[in-house]
Amino acid sequence: MSEIIVADGVTKRFRQPKRYSGLAGAIKGLISREFTEVRAVEDISFTIRAGEAVGYLGPNGAGKSTMIKMMTGILVPTGGALSVLGRTPHEERMVNAREIGVVFGQRSQLWWDLPVHDSFELHRRIYDVPEARYRENLAHLTRMLGMESYLDRAVRQLSLGQRMRAEMAMALLHDPRILFLDEPTIGLDVVAKDAVRKFLTEVNRERGVTIILTTHDLQDIEEICPRLIMVDDGKLLFDGELKRLRTALGARRRLKLDFATDPGPVSLTSARLVSDEGASKHFLIENEETSLVDVLAELGGGHGLKDVSLEEPDIEEVIRTFYQQRPALVPQ
């Protein structure tokens, strides 16, 4: 696998005119020419290989979109070097554009008053997709996304979920090698989110399209992206597998034991009791190495055990722990 995106010390700063508060401030604003500098992306380095699916995660204003915009050639980095498919995106924006697909969750690229088909046809012409290839891709994507029923309807009549599926299909019509998605599931209901995630996973695994997505929704990452890049305040916080993040944080699994009748107090060395409701007891397993078998072996028989459930740590919790522990956990 080759490295298709290389970011080396990429930095982006914006200048914003200073704002003053109050009436006197507003009058001052009429003549002032002062600026404040905003550091949106600060010295970020990473490499992404062909075929990866990477989640780019961070709170609002962390510089996620700015990074995507630099990789797609929209913004020019203030410092550092960025290479996408061997090119500097902003210098060869048009050539780069032919080989990437971009979906913005909050900004439609479809024509509001016209049927979905028309936007697709325009896309075909702009990207100069050969007729046969276009028809093949369209048929395939329509089937995968179940869009048969609404390709002829005006975009304004579609639900948000239908629209997002059409946006994703459009971004893939020209066989891009990389698909960038900026908040693809924002505002969608649970069913639509699920459809988007399944589709992206399939596109990544079966078509080998490299996927880079920014999101607020950790479930997106859990289901689509084996690899996670976390940023905050413009800086890189973590880059690696989600599993590694869990291990690094000593993430805890939840164990629940249900008994036929209350067996009285039960204590274990492999798991710590957190709540005792008599017939059902909750434990936390703090050691990553401990398996369910270990726990059951320690417990032994004769307690009238009826049911066992083991829950992986909630990713939300993992991330929350991560941000809380951040000062102690600078990567590398």
């Binding site: 009436l23 507003a26 009058i27 604003g29 009429l30 003549i31």
Partner: peptide, 11 residues
Amino acid sequence: FQTRLAYRNQA
């Protein structure tokens, strides 16, 4: 009045 003041260039 204040809203208009905020847009100095427009003024």
